[in-house]
Amino acid sequence: MEFANVNWIAVVAGTVVAFLFGWLVYSPMLFAKAWAEGSGVELTADSRPPMGAMLLQIAGLFFLATVIGVTATINALFAAILAILAAASLTISNGAFCGKSRAALTIDAGYIIGAGILMIAAQGIL
């Protein structure tokens, strides 16, 4: 079975690190203002992320980290890269349909690609 040899510690670590990377990318320290303006989201001093969206983000990151973990068991790095690029492309497509700016689309895609790189790194390190 594909899951028998998955490094679950690396999957969980990749998920957590990718989630924290998202906090940084979408924080006021980096791209929060540009992303919000380009996405039609109004940020206020007391703005909080919607919990449902945060839970789905964690689930999606876990699923992607699991795909990368499975590909690591068979040395299929190219398949992992394709999965990351597919996720980034679908994110861009969805955002483009919603009318996001080029900056917001770039931030979203950059986050997915960066998260994927971190997940691959977790598999390689752990």
Rank of each mutant, 00 (worst) to 15 (best):
M1T: 08
M1E: 03
E2L: 13
A4F: 07
N5I: 04
N5H: 15
N5Q: 15
V6P: 07
V6C: 06
N7I: 01
W8M: 02
I9L: 06
V11E: 00
V11A: 02
V11R: 09
V12C: 03
A13C: 10
A13E: 07
G14N: 02
G14Q: 05
T15N: 10
T15P: 05
V16Y: 00
V16L: 06
V17H: 00
A18E: 04
L20S: 13
L20G: 09
F21L: 11
F21D: 00
G22I: 12
G22E: 08
G22R: 07
W23C: 15
L24G: 11
Y26I: 14
Y26P: 03
S27T: 10
S27V: 15
S27H: 03
P28C: 08
M29V: 15
M29A: 15
M29C: 07
L30P: 10
F31D: 01
A32W: 00
A32Y: 01
K33W: 10
A34Y: 01
A34L: 09
S39Y: 03
S39A: 14
V41G: 00
E42Q: 11
E42R: 11
E42T: 14
T44D: 09
T44I: 02
A45V: 12
A45K: 14
D46R: 04
R48Y: 08
P49H: 00
P49C: 05
G52V: 12
A53F: 09
L56N: 04
L56M: 14
L56W: 08
Q57F: 11
A59W: 07
A59I: 15
G60D: 06
L61S: 01
L61I: 06
L61T: 10
F63P: 08
L64K: 01
L64P: 03
L64R: 04
A65P: 06
T66I: 11
T66R: 04
V67N: 04
I68R: 12
G69E: 01
V70I: 15
T71D: 05
T71W: 02
A72K: 08
A72V: 07
I74K: 12
N75Q: 12
A76K: 13
A76N: 08
L77F: 10
L77R: 13
L77M: 08
F78S: 14
F78V: 15
A80K: 09
I81S: 08
I81F: 14
I81A: 15
I81P: 03
L82R: 11
L82I: 15
A83P: 01
A86L: 14
A87Q: 08
A88T: 01
T91W: 06
N94H: 13
G95T: 04
C98I: 11
C98T: 12
C98Q: 15
K100D: 13
K100E: 15
R102M: 13
R102H: 04
L105N: 12
T106P: 05
I107F: 09
I107H: 03
A109I: 09
G110D: 13
I112N: 02
I112P: 07
I112Q: 03
I113K: 13
I113C: 12
I113T: 12
G114E: 00
G114L: 00
A115Q: 00
G116N: 04
G116K: 02
I117D: 04
I117H: 02
L118A: 04
L118N: 01
M119G: 09
A121D: 06
A121L: 14
A122P: 05
A122F: 01
G124V: 09
I125M: 03
L126I: 14
L126H: 13
